[in-house]
Write a protein that binds this DNA or RNA. Structure first.
Length: 593
RNA sequence: GCGCCUGUAGCUCAGUGGAUAGAGCACUUGCCUCCGGAGCAAGGGGCCACAGGUUCAAAUCCUGUCAGGCGCACCA
């Protein structure tokens, strides 16, 4: 009773299958996993199973015959559950529940509220989700925004199906990029005081460097002008990265993205973890010296060649730090590590998979989501960006222009591994062209309906109080079936790490709601009160132009109170699901817009 | 040259090995006296890049070709 209808269907088939297996009617050696899903066309039934076709070759009988056998069993044993059990070529088994059974779905939503759609499939499993992890050498740009939106949505999705998720940001605050940042800032700092400077050729050209330099000039005056320049550069690097990291944190907070831990690369060096990691590999004979450098034998785990971890001059490569970091993550006891990376890092995947295995963990312990590039457009016109030249659109600018909700929805609309066209004009538009408003509007529209109902003192009833027979007509049933799919969408979206499945589901649900709402009135017409009032001047109107008047007069559907009550109860559950879905994506479900 | 990702309607894209491949935009035509028109209804548009293969069944899986993007450091 408290189980999802789809699972009830699976169980029923399993029961019948077991029965025909036992009686010997079908010689089934191994019972296959029974797949049941809503068919492409509603007229085929509520659920459809291909089990007869997968079974056919095993039992050496035509699929249609197998399906017919199962159908007979289902009709005999579950006549109170299914109103119709059909067989369709080439061997589909189509099940139609008794319509009233669908009310269970609404009941489940009402009972669980904001918890509807959650599950426990990940119970007891801990996941470390690392994302964004942009170097603190500049502000976040649009590409980082996509990673941030994706990470935050994936985290919420996984949590909602029972995983414990920890969000982490890895700060690359060691190494050459930071050095370069220090030199760039220091050069601008000298320029500020009118001193001769040499801006590094491959330095950071963005205007934000000047702003950082001016701030350094303000707080430190001319103190950094004297003394050795490499010390001053190092100081500038520290100051700048701290300032930029603060900015990054602020941007992410505005975007509604939060992290439990900010993990500093420097700490790996300071605590000797890199050395430890390399020592372990040396012991396992997976790190060997050649040409004066130490090579990680990643090719043993499927990488195309071995990689240097410690250079001839004794310094570590980026890989060494990353190996130590991943070893450390795994030793913290997580079952799975998920990294969200820019697609330009894809060549790096084999060596990280090798790393995980080298430290004794399964290859599957690491899952990597690649995020493709975002091209910004403004009304079809592409906005060119070049990070080198410091010309790029920051996440902050996008949020300021279109708002966090629209930005997130757009980032999550498409599969992560495809290029994303982000039209700023479209994201700003407040119309049906804009999918985020379309979904939010559905929610706000319902909120408004309940507000008006309240004003007119129409009570919002609980499901148990309404006449449920009024809700099992085609249109209502269509909505209910979509609501029933929600938990499966969430589960699929979470385990596949693909939030875009949820965005498309919400668009579909919103469309269905709008259509229903447009066609079916919920509250009683105000006119019904007026027409039942005084009829005194009606006669006068009649003598004037009765024919013309009556042909233009709209015919108001009569909405009896129990129909209003039933529809309100139904729409309440629709609102809950829209709200739950938007919340999972980190997008607000507004009461008013 | 090697590797990864992507080729689906004019455009941007969904599509879990299943039945007649879908949505939005754009275009055409309708719908506001009352619950939010930020909405709804109807219409035209397709060698699912191409060629083979696997399968009862392929847009989906495999191989090859072509096209686009990205990556191939003792850089990070």
């Amino acid at each position: 009773m408290d189980e999802l209808l789809q699972n009830q269907a699976i169980k029923a088939i399993a029961v019948v299958l077991g029965k025909v297996q036992k009686s010997g009617e079908l010689k089934v050696a191994t019972i296959p996993t029974i797949v049941v899903e809503p068919p492409k066309r509603p007229e085929w039934g509520d659920f459809s199973s291909s089990v007869a076709m997968t079974l056919a070759s095993q039992v050496r009988q035509p699929p249609l015959k197998v399906a017919e056998l199962l159908a007979t069993g289902l009709r005999a044993q579950f006549s109170d559950v299914f109103v119709c059990v059909d067989v369709a070529p080439p061997g589909f088994l189509n099940l139609t529940f008794h319509p009233l059974r669908w009310i269970q779905v609404l009941q489940m939503i009402q009972d669980n509220g904001s918890l509807y759609g959650t599950s426990h499939i990940g119970k007891g499993k801990r996941i470390l989700l690392e994302f964004v992890s942009a170097n603190p050498t500049g502000p976040l740009h649009v590409g980082h925004g996509r990673g941030a939106a994706l990470g935050q949505a994936i985290a919420r999705l996984l949590e909602s199906v029972g995983f414990t998720v920890s969000r982490e940001y890895y700060i690359n605050d060691a190494g050459r990029q930071l050095q370069l940042l220090g030199r760039s800032v220091y050069a601008r700092y000298r320029e500020h005081w009118g001193k001769p400077s040499s801006f590094p050729e491959d330095g950071y050209h963005g205007d934000y460097i000047k702003i950082v330099a001016e701030s350094v000039a303000k707080t430190h005056g001319q103190a950094l002008l004297d003394g050795p320049s490499d010390e001053a550069e190092m100081r500038c690097a520290q100051l700048a990265s701290q300032m930029l990291l603060d900015g990054i944190k602020e941007d992410l907070a505005t975007f509604g993205v939060e992290f439990e831990t900010w993990f500093s690369e420097t700490s790996l060096h300071a605590t000797g973890l890199i050395q430890q990691a390399l020592d372990e590999l040396r012991q396992k004979n997976l790190l060997i010296q050649e040409d004066g450098a130490w090579w990680f034998r990643s090719s043993q785990f499927g990488d195309e060649k071995d990689r240097v971890a410690q250079k001839q001059d004794g310094s570590y490569t980026y890989l060494a730090a990353d190996m130590a970091y991943h070893r450390q993550k795994l030793e913290r006891g997580f079952d799975t590590l998920i990294n969200i990376w820019g697609a330009d890092h894809h060549g790096y995947i084999p060596r990280m998979e090798a790393t995980v295995q080298a430290f004794g963990f399964a290859k599957e312990a690491l899952r990597i989501v690649l995020v493709q590039m975002v091209s910004l457009r403004r009304g079809g016109q592409k906005i060119e960006m070049s990070k080198r030249a410091g010309e790029f659109v920051t996440l902050r600018e996008v949020i300021d222009e279109v708002g966090p909700d629209a930005a997130k929805f757009f980032f999550l609309m498409r599969r992560a591994d495809t290029h994303l066209d982000f039209d700023l004009e479209l994201a700003k538009q407040q119309s049906s062209d804009n999918p985020v408003y379309y979904v939010q509007y559905a929610h706000a529209r319902l909120a408004s309906l309940f507000r008006v109902a309240h004003e007119r003192q129409v009570r919002l009833p609980a499901l148990q109080e309404v006449d449920q027979a009024l809700l099992v007509h085609n249109e209502e049933l269509g909505l209910i079936k979509t609501l029933a799919q929600y938990p499966f969408v969430v589960e699929g979206s979470a385990t596949a790490l693909e939030p875009h499945r949820l965005t498309s589901y919400l668009q579909e649900l919103a469309a269905q709601l709008h259509a229903y709402y447009n066609k079916n009135r919920v509250l009683p017409s105000l006119d019904s009160e007026r027409t039942t009032g005084d009829t005194g001047d009606k006669g006068e109107l009649g003598t004037n132009g009765n024919v013309a008047a009556s042909s233009q007069e709209p015919t108001y559907e009569c909405i009896p109170p129990d129909l209003t009550a039933a529809r309100l109860a139904l729409l309440r559950q629709v609102q809950t699901v829209i709200s739950n879905g938007l919340t999972l994506l980190g997008i607000s479900a507004p009461e008013k817009m």
